[in-house]
């Protein structure tokens, strides 16, 4: 293999990997925030809001990210709202991921039994403290596998952001392709994604094993 190619393209790939990492980070964090809000609205069955949340979740889960991004980037400006590529990518990821996280967290919250909540109440815990000390810690452990799957799913979905004119890994690979380094650039592409996502996947597996160990599952 041509080593000079690697040394030349390495900075480009490194920069693109960093971009993907940053987009994924904000996308995942905001998704968890949005998802938590939606899940709590569902959990407390807040009227009106829960209808809106339901509609949002269904729309986000049943349309592809790439279509959502195209709409954000190419159609919204015509309606008077201009977002730059990075903002579009993070907004799109959050729109999509928020819905998945909401479902994950909701199933976690629902897994906490009615009598667990009553026990907390009988000890004098108010609504907020009950959430914080008793419901959320248990719900998170149950939701963790789905949260981890969603995180990895979102990181993989960032691979489409070149359509909103971002110079991500795929963009770099495609660019180098034109110069006729198909195998090398494609291998670099695969390696970069492995470096990005494999540690996250392993990290979550470790967390899941630990939270199972810490007193859950009968």
């Amino acid at each position: 293999m041509d080593t000079s190619f690697i040394s030349q393209s390495l900075p480009l790939f490194a920069k693109a990997t960093w971009l993907t990492l940053v987009l994924s980070f904000f996308g995942v964090v905001f998704s968890i925030v949005v998802g938590t809000f939606c899940a709590i609205i569902n959990f407390y069955k807040i009227p009106v809001l829960r209808r809106i949340v339901y509609a949002y979740i269904e729309v986000a889960r049943n349309t592809p990210l790439i279509v959502q991004l195209f709409f954000l980037y190419y159609a919204l400006p015509r309606l008077g709202m201009v977002l730059d590529g990075k903002t579009c990518a993070v907004v799109g990821l959050t729109f999509l991921g928020g819905a998945y996280m909401a479902e994950a967290i909701r199933s976690g919250l629902q897994s906490v039994g009615r009598t667990q909540i009553e026990t907390g109440m009988s000890l004098g815990f108010g609504k907020i403290k009950l959430m914080r000390y008793i419901i959320i810690p248990q719900a998170l452990a149950v939701a963790l596998p789905v949260i981890s799957a969603t995180t990895i799913f979102l990181m993989k979905e960032t691979s489409v952001v070149s359509i909103v004119a971002l110079h991500d890994l795929l963009y770099v690979a495609k660019d180098l392709l034109k110069e006729g380094h198909a195998l090398q650039s494609n291998l670099m592409l695969v390696v970069c994604y492995l470096i990005l996502i494999l540690p996250v996947s392993l990290g979550f597996s470790y967390l899941e094993r630990r939270s199972r160990f810490a007193g859950f599952g009968a």
Binding site: G113, T115, S122, Q138, F216
Partner: peptide, 9 residues
Amino acid sequence: FQSYELFPH
């Protein structure tokens, strides 16, 4: 309670 309901975490 009948079902103890210790907090599992």
